[in-house]
Structures are given as structure tokens and as C-alpha cells.
Amino acid sequence: MRGPDGADTHFDELRDVFLLQTRDKRNPLVYAGFFHSTSSIFQGSAVCVYTMADIRRAFLGPFAHKEGPNYQWVSYQGRVPYPRPGMCPSKTFGTFGSTKDFPDEVIQFARHHPLMYNPVLPHGQQPLFLQAAVPYTFTRIAVDRVTAADGHYDVLFIGTDVGTVLKVVS
């Protein structure tokens, strides 16, 4: 997101997530609370909303790894072991009843490639709700979908580290 002076700011500490079911049970909305920024320019808390489909797409994409003389993050183009790191163990699609059964190659690959290359961007490419320069940070989030005379609204209940609860209508 853009900070007040136009510089990019990244919220990097995820503290709470709330899944809001939709008509499509496989694709809930994911409300995520980011409660800190390591930016020296901008300090604040944010709530972003994602679709599970966007999250799945990123996790099925390429892994990231550092390469080259500047040791920069690039898309990993090599062989990915089976079962693909990040997949849940399943007797349906293999012989793995637990991650303890995964081959060492899979565990080592996951240790050396902990990041996905493609980002998961929030709906609208920006936070749904943002607070900056306030004496508190967000700690918890809950969401309720309500019906009003003029449509449906998502009501966010956001807990803070000073014991208050913010009520935000989206």
C-alpha cells in the first residue's frame, strides 16, 4: 500500500484471520488483520479481505528462491518434489497419512523454499480498513454479514491491544 508520502509500505505481521462463509462453501472470504509495519515511514494497522481462490492460486504457483550475484528473490524453475510442499497428506492421493511420512527431499525443499513467488493481493489492491498514527494496534478480528433494507453489509469487530473494540461497516 502507498504510505502518506507516496512510498510503498508493506504490512508484514499477520495477527488474526477470520473466514466469512459465502454461498460457495469452497471459496470463503478471508479477512486478515495486519497489525504492524516495519516501515520507518508509516506505522499502522490494516484489515484486508482476500478470496480463497486467490490464495489457492498463489500456493499452486511457483516457489521463490534467492539467486544471482545480488541474491534476489526469483521464481524457482527447478523440479518440485512430490508431494508438493504445502499439500495436506492424504491416503486418497498418495501413501502419506501424515507429514511425518513425507520424504526428506520434500522437507528439505520446504525448508529452502519457504516463500511463494506470486503475491496474494487484497481485494481492491488495498486494505479495506486502515488506521495510522493511533496509540493502539489491532489484535483480533471477527466479521458478521448483515442484511439491511438497502443490501448486505459486512460488519467488522476489531479488537485492539488497549482493550477497545472498533466496529467498522463495509
Results as ranks from 00 to 15, higher is better:
residue 69 P to K: 08
residue 74 V to R: 02
residue 74 V to S: 02
residue 74 V to F: 03
residue 75 S to E: 14
residue 77 Q to N: 01
residue 78 G to H: 01
residue 79 R to A: 06
residue 80 V to M: 00
residue 80 V to T: 08
residue 81 P to H: 08
residue 84 R to L: 04
residue 86 G to L: 09
residue 87 M to V: 05
residue 88 C to D: 10
residue 89 P to L: 09
residue 90 S to N: 06
residue 91 K to A: 08
residue 94 G to H: 05
residue 95 T to N: 07
residue 97 G to H: 10
residue 98 S to Q: 03
residue 99 T to H: 06
residue 99 T to D: 05
residue 102 F to W: 12
residue 105 E to C: 00
residue 107 I to P: 00
residue 107 I to R: 04
residue 107 I to A: 03
residue 108 Q to V: 08
residue 108 Q to F: 04
residue 109 F to E: 04
residue 109 F to I: 12
residue 109 F to V: 09
residue 110 A to K: 02
residue 112 H to W: 01
residue 112 H to T: 14
residue 114 P to T: 13
residue 117 Y to Q: 02
residue 118 N to C: 06
residue 118 N to K: 05
residue 120 V to H: 02
residue 125 Q to P: 00
residue 126 Q to C: 14
residue 126 Q to V: 15
residue 128 L to W: 09
residue 129 F to S: 11
residue 131 Q to T: 15
residue 132 A to M: 15
residue 133 A to L: 11
residue 134 V to G: 05
residue 135 P to W: 13
residue 136 Y to T: 06
residue 138 F to M: 10
residue 141 I to C: 01
residue 142 A to Q: 09
residue 143 V to P: 01
residue 143 V to G: 05
residue 144 D to S: 10
residue 145 R to S: 11
residue 147 T to V: 15
residue 147 T to K: 11
residue 148 A to K: 12
residue 148 A to E: 14
residue 149 A to Y: 07
residue 149 A to I: 13
residue 150 D to T: 14
residue 151 G to S: 11
residue 151 G to C: 12
residue 151 G to W: 15
residue 152 H to F: 14
residue 152 H to D: 15
residue 153 Y to L: 13
residue 155 V to D: 09
residue 155 V to R: 04
residue 157 F to P: 00
residue 160 T to V: 04
residue 160 T to Y: 02
residue 162 V to G: 00
residue 163 G to Q: 02
residue 163 G to I: 07
residue 164 T to M: 07
